[in-house]
Amino acid sequence: MEGILVPLITPFAADGSIATDALAALADDVLTQGAAGIVALGTTAEAFALDADEKRIVLDICAQACADHGASLIVGAGSNDTRSSATALAEHPHVDAALVPVPYYVRPGEAGVLAHFTRLAADTPVPLLVYHVPHRTAQPLSAATLLTLSRIPDIVGAKVASGMTEDAVALLGDCPPDFAVFAGDDTYLSPMLALGARGGITASAHLATAQFARLVSAWHKGDMATARPLGHTLARLATALFAEPNPTVLKGVLHAQGRIPTPDVRLPLLPASPESVAAALTEATE
């Protein structure tokens, strides 16, 4: 796997139900514009607020779009409990990979994280991507732990959302060549690619998808004349889209563009302010 993987939002209709037609259109659009795949039921999808039936609807729509385009399908799965995470992973045997967060809230320590992923990798049939996002999990990981994870069989990559930190740089420098590191903080996509990231799991790529795909291609080809200015442009867009909790600003922009029927999110999220949406719209049109 490489390239831009878009963690799709879940659009809602005015009555609060999933806007299935809009979701299908978004999936088709980002894949048509150059995304290499879709992440279903990730953080950006508000998976925490979807019931089991709604999750199945989202996954079915994303799976169909990926099948139509020959694209990769990754599913967000797992929690801070090892046993329930293994059960959840067993429910998705036909996806290309599962994006599994480092256990959150319980703060099991780095040895506990290693034991968690070692057990999951041994017990489940799905290739795993480690989701390293310490500002959400409250569980930082050292470079040594990340490198150990990169060498566990059936852990095929990681979404690194820790910014341009020493652990991210060390992982990119020393992980096995078949281990796919994806940038997880949209603003740092370009420098992560410059250091060897395989691509990005990039919510901002709902917008300007073709440009995000072009950025990955440019860095992989060593075309710095293209990559550097384009990376700065897309970083400004990403910064604007994350001015308020994800995916509130993104949904506001997509609604303003007529691509989803409402900008609605589910509590405890609140819709983004008009000022943040307007600022992001300006970056999206430049």
Rank of each mutant, 00 (worst) to 15 (best):
P103L: 06
S72W: 09
H94S: 15
A203P: 00
D123S: 14
V160L: 07
L270A: 15
Q257D: 08
G16W: 00
S217I: 01
T262S: 15
L128T: 07
Y105G: 01
T10K: 08
L73P: 13
D264F: 11
P125H: 11
K159V: 01
I57Y: 07
L41P: 08
P229T: 00
Y104I: 02
A122Q: 07
A111R: 15
L5D: 06
R119V: 06
A278T: 06
E54H: 11
A52E: 13
Y131P: 07
A86M: 10
A25P: 06
A122V: 00
A45T: 09
G112D: 03
C66P: 12
R56V: 13
D81A: 12
M192L: 11
A235G: 10
H206A: 01
F117Y: 13
A115T: 02
L207G: 13
D174C: 07
L270Q: 15
V95A: 14
A256K: 05
I201N: 00
L147W: 05
A243N: 02
N246A: 14
G3R: 07
M1S: 07
L234T: 06
T248C: 15
H116S: 04
G34Y: 09
G16E: 01
D68E: 12
P247S: 13
A22I: 05
G200T: 06
L99K: 06
V106P: 04
V133C: 08
D154Q: 14
S190G: 00
S84N: 07
E286V: 02
S273H: 05
A227V: 04
L171H: 12
C62A: 10
R151Q: 15
F48P: 01
F182C: 08
Q139S: 12
A161E: 14
E91D: 13
A205N: 09
N80Y: 09
A36N: 05
I155G: 05
A194N: 01
A168D: 02
Q33T: 08
C175A: 09
L26M: 04
C175Q: 01
Y131N: 08
L8T: 11
T124M: 05
L267S: 10
S17Y: 03
T137D: 05
P176Q: 07
T187C: 07
G252H: 09
L141H: 14
A210L: 03
P153T: 10
T118K: 13
R119Y: 13
A77P: 02
P263Y: 06
L146W: 11
A180D: 10
